[in-house]
Design a protein around this nucleic acid. Structure first.
Lengths: 198, 198
DNA sequence: AAAAAATTGTTGCAAAAGCCACAAAAATTA
DNA sequence: TAATTTTTGTGGCTTTTGCAACAATTTTTT
């Protein structure tokens, strides 16, 4: 699971200047990218934190995904026929690697070290992405607010291997992340506390 | 998106006998595998159709995922700390390739052609998996039954590029797939029809 | 072809979740 | 530090969803 050491090495390896790679910095609150035109964009969050956001036509905000260090995102991961306006917002200051993905096995003409190392680490990155998504599906497929909360708290505690958890969101954002109404969620949190569940 | 030709080739390539690979056939209704012990199992559905199922402690069945030809599944895609009983059930007769995944770059001693081709196609398979999962998250994050249904129908019609859709599930299963109550879903389907939405 | 099992269509009622609104508190910005 | 914005906590009311139940089909099995 922990591939941070492996990734550190990877990051060092691509500090050369490959023409297909760009690294940009973003301040908290800035838009990192929008998923509109299909440009086969593939991104790696090098540090910081960002969210993938959707607003539906009721005006509801949903936090589709929450990205942390070395998480991958971008339009490559969405089907061509997506009719949604999705965008990635920096939750904290962050640094993002952008790469135009055609075929993982195509190297640039320079045959630079970035491409070699990307190919080596690509599967690991994608596998990590899938595991995250499966956890996400696990949460969202829970039938009621209470179960979503319990699942989410268990997830947090299993990540830190600790009984005390720290929610990385405000309650407002947590509700948007679990795709539920905030006031209804507050009610349920209160009842979990009353029953000494957490 | 369509990688079926590529896959056909792949399938042909591993008809040799690699010691780490097993291909098994299952009849409709049989259990393909259960996600209990972490055995780093990686599977490819060669043909047929299968579901990933969870029963929660209320007895609710949820169809976490629905797998079709060349979809990948298995324990590798789940975090080690999964406390869920998940199992894969054959919805139709199917053939499944099992492979114990350690590191995609480890070849077996024989240096057989399976491993070479798997490495070549692995990213494509994973990317496909991610796209499926993102569509799944898209559906499940919708706030109400009506929107889930509309999203799902749109998805189907965009897949076939047609206005008439065929739901690959019974209504009973569709409800389990969308993680909602069947009778409530029937009510909403009826109202969509009344409003000539579909 | 008959019997058994599963799906569909439909209710009334109960429970859960959503919506709106507002004051208090906390965090952020000027 | 003061002003402004965001978050939290809460409640009343409405709407949606879930539950249980059952007859009518349809499908599958014997």
């Amino acid at each position: 699971m922990d591939n941070s050491f492996e990734m550190e090495q990877f990051i060092k390896d691509f500090t050369n200047n490959c023409s297909k790679v760009q690294i940009k910095k973003f301040s908290k609150g800035e838009t990192v990218t929008t998923y509109i035109e299909k440009r086969n964009q593939f991104c790696i969050l090098l540090n910081g934190e960002a969210d993938l956001i959707r607003y539906d036509f009721y005006g509801h905000k949903t936090i589709i995904a929450n990205f942390n260090q070395y998480d991958t995102f971008g339009e490559v991961f969405y089907p061509a026929n997506t009719n949604n306006e999705l965008f990635v917002l920096a939750r904290k200051n962050c640094e993002v690697l952008f790469y135009i993905y055609d075929n993982i096995n195509y190297k640039c003409r320079k045959n630079c070290s970035f491409h070699s190392t990307l190919i080596n680490h690509f599967s690991t990155l994608l596998l990590h992405n899938i595991i995250n998504l499966n956890m996400r599906v696990e949460l969202l497929s829970k039938r009621n607010i209470r179960d979503k909360l319990i699942s989410y708290f268990n997830l947090l505690s299993s990540k830190t291997l600790s009984k005390t958890i720290t929610i990385p969101f405000s309650y407002t954002d947590l509700a948007d992340y679990l795709s539920i109404d905030r006031s209804a969620m507050m009610r349920d949190i209160k009842s979990l506390i009353d029953q000494r569940y957490y």
